[in-house]
């Protein structure tokens, strides 16, 4: 049966990228524990609109944990405290009556705040555009079964490809590095025979784009892996480093 809890929300409010932001406190009585976290914010926003105030802006779309749009820092953790969970899949039954919940946007200079909890993640687009693809024009492909791929390799490539591009890795990293995001793509293609022809150029260009977009370096603290809602393994960063080293040597 439905239970309710009373919460205090401490939310980052910021009108746009130019003005500075601040925390505001909202009382949130009678939260149904079956609600999702975002539905709880919907209820708050509904109230704010009725009171003639501006609602809290946050990114969200599919609410099924797959589009990667939602992006909040909840009580100091990306997507909240549950492992392997995006904010939209976090439900209020995991919170306690009387708790104060702090909600912030991703904090990284490469992810400037657009408004309230919404940030600009276009740095990720730049990384993808620098080589997150296999150059094959439409209509040129050989039969899909002409090239067998060992199941273990295919499965590992899938594990890497499961990244949803939400940015939790960057937000959790003390250096605001996007190496987990970048390595997931590099690793996916490095594991597949289709990725072979562009292997070297890809990794060099993507790493350069990563640095140019203002993301920091990786110092192997592992926070990204711990906070990734899709459980992307830090071993992909190890593979990225090998790929990068090999490519750099050949280049020179």
């Amino acid at each position: 049966m439905a239970e309710t809890i009373n919460l205090k929300l401490k939310i980052w409010r910021q009108k746009n990228s130019k003005e500075s932001g601040r925390f505001e406190i909202y009382d949130m009585p009678g939260v149904n524990t079956h609600m999702s976290f975002l539905e709880m914010l919907d209820v708050l926003n509904d109230r704010l609109v009725r009171e003639g105030k501006e609602p809290v802006a946050f990114d969200h779309d599919c609410r099924e944990g797959i589009c990667g749009m939602c992006s909040m820092y909840i009580n100091g953790r990306a997507h909240g405290m549950l492992k392997g969970t995006t904010t939209c899949q976090l439900h209020m039954r995991h919170f306690h009556d009387g708790e104060t919940v702090t909600i912030e946007p991703w904090r990284a200079s490469a992810f400037p705040v657009i408004r309230d909890l919404v940030v600009d993640r276009s740095g990720f687009e730049k990384i993808m555009q620098a080589g997150g693809y296999i150059s094959v024009n439409t209509g040129n492909a050989p039969d899909a079964n002409s090239l067998p791929i060992a199941k273990v390799k295919a499965d590992e490539a899938f594990d890497a490809a499961a990244c949803i591009g939400c940015g939790a890795c960057v937000a959790s990293c003390k250096n605001a590095s996007a190496m987990l995001f970048l390595s997931a793509k590099v690793s996916q293609f490095a594991l597949l025979p289709q990725g072979e022809p562009e292997r070297r150029e890809r990794v060099l260009r993507m790493v350069a784009a990563h640095d140019e977009a203002g993301f920091g370096s990786c110092t192997n603290t592992g926070a990204c892996e711990a906070e990734c809602p899709k459980g992307i393994s830090i071993s992909h960063i190890a593979r990225l480093n090998r790929e990068y080293l090999a490519a750099s040597l050949v280049k020179e």
Partner: peptide, 22 residues
């Protein structure tokens, strides 16, 4: 059928059998 070919060529990791085929 061409869609599957195209996607595999792009590196889409479809489920495979142990023999390596789709």
């Amino acid at each position: 059928t061409a869609i599957i070919d195209q996607c595999v060529a792009q590196g889409v990791p479809f489920a495979r059998e142990y023999g390596g085929l789709l």
